[in-house]
Simulated scan of single mutants.
Amino acid sequence: MATLPTVTITYCSQCNWLLRAGWMAQELLSSFSTDLAAVTLVPGTGGIYQISVDGQLIWDRKTDGGFPDAAVLKQRLRDICFPDRSLGHIDKAKSNPETPSA
């Protein structure tokens, strides 16, 4: 049996980004549910906001320019862990970039 992926969200506690990290964890768990082993929140300092899956960085606030949109983060996680999986309306919006988003 394959090991399920673990997502780690490291957030700056000095910047009060716990709620943002918790919301992102909730979004990932809502979409991927029992396909994930865990989503772990790790407090840090110095403006850090990084998201990794099994140690592979998939979002860094400083290099990616801010905070991820939930849809973008779900796509990055899916592309690494579940490449054949459809994300439904999220994928449809990605395939038709001229469609205005709500």
Rank of each mutant, 00 (worst) to 15 (best):
M1V: 13
M1F: 08
M1Y: 09
A2W: 04
A2I: 15
T3W: 03
L4V: 04
P5E: 07
T6I: 12
V7H: 02
T8G: 02
I9E: 01
I9H: 00
I9P: 01
I9N: 00
I9A: 05
C12W: 03
Q14K: 14
C15A: 13
C15G: 01
C15T: 07
C15P: 02
N16D: 10
L18E: 15
L19F: 11
L19C: 09
L19Q: 14
A21H: 00
A21P: 02
Q26I: 05
E27T: 10
L28D: 01
S30C: 09
S31N: 11
S31G: 08
F32T: 01
F32I: 03
S33A: 15
T34E: 12
D35F: 02
D35C: 06
L36E: 04
L36Y: 06
A37E: 15
A37Q: 13
A38M: 08
A38D: 15
V39A: 02
T40I: 14
T40P: 04
L41E: 06
V42G: 03
V42T: 12
V42H: 08
P43R: 06
T45V: 14
T45W: 08
T45K: 06
G46R: 07
G47C: 09
G47E: 10
I48P: 00
I48V: 15
Y49H: 05
I51W: 00
I51A: 01
S52I: 09
S52Q: 14
S52V: 07
S52F: 03
V53E: 04
V53F: 00
V53A: 07
G55W: 04
Q56M: 13
Q56G: 04
Q56K: 14
Q56N: 11
Q56L: 13
L57V: 13
L57N: 13
W59N: 00
W59E: 02
D60P: 01
K62D: 13
T63S: 12
T63R: 08
D64K: 04
D64A: 11
D64W: 00
D64I: 00
D64V: 00
G66E: 05
G66Q: 06
F67V: 07
F67Q: 05
F67H: 03
P68Y: 00
A70H: 05
A71H: 08
A71D: 14
V72Y: 00
Q75N: 12
R76F: 04
R78T: 11
I80M: 11
I80F: 05
D84F: 01
D84C: 07
R85Y: 08
S86H: 11
L87R: 03
G88P: 10
H89E: 15
I90C: 10
I90N: 08
I90K: 08
D91S: 10
D91W: 05
K92G: 12
K92M: 14
K94P: 02
K94L: 15
S95G: 07
N96D: 15
N96K: 12
N96T: 15
N96I: 13
E98W: 10
E98P: 03
T99Y: 10
P100W: 12
S101D: 13
S101V: 15
S101C: 14
A102M: 09
A102F: 09
A102K: 09
